[in-house]
């Protein structure tokens, strides 16, 4: 047993299995975590495998001992059973992998949506051209913020709450019916990463205004420019940041 523990081959196998267990079972158990998607598991395991191979082969002596069991299994007469078993297992695994790759499945294919697609540099809002680059929320310069925020709150609860939810966390009543899920504004990956003009664009143009990389499953977000005025949208934007406590991304100040 101790000989096995000291042997680089078995150490490598052990490390590999341990990494798999950590990624697939331990990470999801951590507080606030969730299952790791299989694409990421594959990527992690490939990295770990390369790391292990580097470790076993960067020293001549270790590399030689590492290869011993492999070599023996392939040529030793007494290990014929193991050899045959291994060959059968490899064939079976390849077969199973091929089968799982080609078999028809009912699940929708994994999708790659760009969550923050590139905004146009300007948009047409009800026939008026608005330049998004460098645009700040105009309401921030119009007197007290509180009335604007209150107005934004009212509009949010009139229009947005069924999908984006009471807590602005994307868990509204209708949320579970959508793919993609409604944006979670509390998450540090949504409005916290964006300028207010980007948020304005997304509200004004909604799902139909998404560029191609926002597909394949298109967002159900309506184009709010048909329902709200420019100031109303800006006040909702103000409310979103005020309520979540995030700061909008600011434009870089050019030296000029």
């Amino acid at each position: 047993m101790r000989a096995y523990l000291r042997h680089p081959f078995w150490q490598a196998v052990g490390l590999f299995v341990l990494a798999y267990l950590v990624i697939v079972f331990v990470i999801p158990m951590l507080p606030g975590s969730a299952m790791v998607p299989s694409s990421v598991v594959l990527q992690y395991m490939a990295t770990v495998l390369v790391g292990i191979l580097i470790w076993v082969s960067d020293d001549e002596a270790r590399w030689t001992t590492f290869k011993e069991p492999l070599h023996e299994v392939l040529i030793q007469p007494r290990l014929k059973l193991v050899r045959n078993g291994l060959l059968a297992a490899v064939t079976l695994v390849v077969g199973c992998l091929t089968y799982s790759q080609v078999k028809a499945s009912v699940a929708a294919p994994p999708n790659l949506r760009s969550i923050h697609p590139a905004p146009p540099s300007q948009i047409t809002f009800r026939g008026k051209t608005i330049t998004l680059v460098g645009l700040e929320n105009p309401l921030r310069k119009q007197g007290e913020l509180a009335p604007h925020v209150a107005e934004g709150r009212r509009i949010y609860y009139q229009n947005c709450v069924p999908c984006h939810g009471d807590h602005l966390d994307g868990q509204g009543h209708f949320a579970s019916g959508f793919n993609p899920l409604p944006a979670n504004f509390q998450d540090n990956g949504t409005i916290a990463q964006l300028t207010e003009s980007f948020v304005f664009w997304r509200i004004a143009k909604g799902g139909p205004g998404l560029p191609r990389e926002g597909t394949p499953w298109n967002s159900a977000m309506p184009a709010w420019e048909d329902f709200l005025t420019e100031d109303e949208i800006w006040s909702v934007v103000l409310f979103l940041y005020d309520q979540t406590g995030w700061k909008p991304r600011t434009w870089e100040v050019t030296a000029k």
């Binding site: 799902g207 139909p208 998404l210 191609r212 597909t215 499953w217 298109n218 159900a220």
Partner: peptide, 8 residues
Amino acid sequence: HGAGGCTA
């Protein structure tokens, strides 16, 4: 086939 999302 695209933005309308009909094929969903």
